[in-house]
């Protein structure tokens, strides 16, 4: 018999646990932990939030250096700044063990497919901190004939830390913001990527592709850069 069928005046004196949950907060559930997790009573939601909090509090960073910013990234890991204080300071050499990739430097045409490959090797859920102006827009090298105009052309980014290079304090702030976002369960934006890594056979056959058709094996992964569109 469901509660709707019951007449309104015949309310039992003692509420069942479930009903008390439906209407409001039972004293028995008031705890610090509960406050931290919010008032929703569903176990599943709490578990998700719990997991988000766990994820944000223990992040394994990928040991990934590209350019000038990686020097400041190393300073951030090293003494004085010590990123480990914030639960995010274990640099892993293998992408298969890492949660977060900090992209510290200029991405050029030859490196972009490799970076995509490294990113693809990281297990889900994974997060990206793009560090420095080059990973935002190409930075001071934006007009270079060989420079990809930002990391977001290749992989989705959660946090951008501007600067050339950003100070270690700025990177720490960026990582702290990422932790906050993860703890709140906000996922990364999925960006439209003009450069896709794809099979050579999938590329639209234009003059250039026709020209290269004999040199490149059909099974090869290739990336196509439309410089005019991206700048």
């Amino acid at each position: 018999m469901s509660s709707q069928d019951r007449p309104a005046d015949s309310k039992p004196a003692v509420q069942s646990t479930q009903e008390s949950r439906m209407e409001g907060t039972d004293d028995r559930f008031n705890s610090k932990l509960r406050e931290a997790f919010g008032s929703s009573p569903f176990i599943l939601t709490k578990f998700d939030q719990f997991m988000n909090w766990v994820r944000g509090s223990s992040m394994f960073m990928l040991q990934f250096g590209i350019a000038c910013c990686s020097i400041e990234m190393m300073s951030t890991y090293a003494i004085k700044h010590d990123l480990d204080r914030f639960g995010s300071g274990v640099p892993r050499a293998s992408p298969r063990q890492a949660d977060v990739i900090i992209v510290p430097g200029t991405i050029v045409s030859k490196f972009a497919p490799r970076m995509k490959r490294v990113y693809d090797q990281m297990p889900e859920p994974k997060f990206v901190v793009s560090m420095g102006s080059c990973t935002i827009s190409g930075g001071p090298f934006q007009q270079g004939y060989n420079v990809v105009k930002g990391a977001e052309e290749v992989i989705p980014c959660d946090i951008h830390v501007p600067g050339c290079p950003p100070r270690p304090e700025a990177l720490i702030y960026g990582v702290a913001k990422l932790q906050e976002r993860i703890a709140n369960g906000e996922s990364s934006p999925v960006t439209v990527k003009p450069y896709e890594l794809e099979q050579f056979g999938d590329l639209e056959r234009d003059e250039l592709v026709d020209h290269l058709a004999e040199d490149i094996d059909q099974e090869t992964l290739v990336m196509r850069y439309n410089w005019a569109d991206s700048s």
Partner: peptide, 21 residues
């Protein structure tokens, strides 16, 4: 697979490029 020599005088910076991996 790069097309052209970018520090030459008549290089077209906007032409598409295909990079194999």
């Amino acid at each position: 697979t790069w097309q052209g020599h970018p520090m030459g005088l008549d290089y077209d910076k906007d032409q598409p490029q295909v990079v194999s991996f």
